[in-house]
Computed example of a mutant assay.
Amino acid sequence: MRAWRFIFGLIAIALAPIARADNCNNAPDQTSMNECSAKASKRADDELNLLYQRIMGRLKEGGADWADAHTALVAAQRAWIAFREAECAFVGSSTAGGTIGPTIVASCLTDLTNDRINDFKRYLKCKEGDLSCPLPPK
């Protein structure tokens, strides 16, 4: 029985960094919080990029009739990225240079990116005939 407890203890110690990386609220120190927040922001950005590519694919499948929508999406996304970066720089300005600054900025980036992800998911689910849908029907 002691051997099993010892083995489970070793497993728990080995998995602690993984658990810490996925749960920013329980990070043991500021460095871990900063790393965790940065990883969360990266995951959100990766998901956003996948959805963006799906939307671009739908627009391309729509043919020449959707060329203006394609151009508009590129412009909108570039403007949104500039907004996101500027907004999060503003949000983090009161903690700039401090140890918590990276966590504040990364959390802001994640929140705004998740909002954009929800927009993209909504675009991808809109029904045929919805005139407010910026994508061609499937």
Rank of each mutant, 00 (worst) to 15 (best):
E85C: 14
D119F: 09
R84A: 05
S37D: 09
R5A: 09
C88Q: 06
D111N: 15
W66G: 00
F8E: 04
R5K: 11
S41R: 00
D115T: 14
A69H: 07
D115F: 12
G63K: 06
D130I: 06
V105E: 03
N26E: 14
G9S: 05
T99S: 15
A96M: 01
P102V: 06
D22V: 15
D65P: 11
R20T: 13
I100P: 04
C24L: 05
M1I: 01
A40Y: 04
Y123F: 11
A14S: 08
L10D: 08
Q77F: 10
T71G: 06
A79E: 14
P136W: 03
E35I: 09
C126T: 01
G57W: 03
R58V: 12
D130K: 13
D130Y: 14
R58D: 13
P137K: 02
E128W: 11
N25F: 09
A38E: 10
D115R: 10
H70E: 12
G129S: 07
T110W: 00
P28T: 11
L135A: 01
A86N: 13
D119G: 00
S107L: 03
G63W: 01
C88M: 02
K39M: 11
L131R: 13
Q30E: 10
D115A: 12
Q77D: 12
P134G: 00
R43K: 12
A3T: 15
T31F: 12
W66M: 03
L73C: 07
G98K: 15
F90G: 11
M33K: 08
M56C: 08
N34A: 09
F6W: 10
S41V: 08
E128P: 10
F90Q: 10
T110E: 11
A69N: 08
Q53S: 14
C24H: 00
G9Q: 03
I18S: 05
C126F: 05
A76P: 04
T95S: 02
D119A: 00
A69S: 02
I18N: 03
I13V: 15
E47I: 04
D130P: 07
K125F: 02
A40L: 14
K60D: 11
G98P: 00
L131T: 14
R78I: 06
R54P: 00
G98H: 05
W4Q: 09
A44G: 05
W66T: 05
A79L: 06
I81K: 06
S41N: 11
K121V: 09
M1H: 14
G97C: 04
W66E: 04
D46Y: 04
S107D: 09
P28F: 12
P136G: 03
K125T: 15
K39S: 11
W80Q: 01
A75T: 11
A12L: 08
G9Y: 10
N34H: 03
A16C: 04
R78S: 05
W80D: 01
E128M: 09
D22Q: 15
A19D: 08
K125V: 07
M56A: 12
E35C: 12
T31V: 13
F120E: 01
C108W: 00
D68K: 11
D119Y: 02
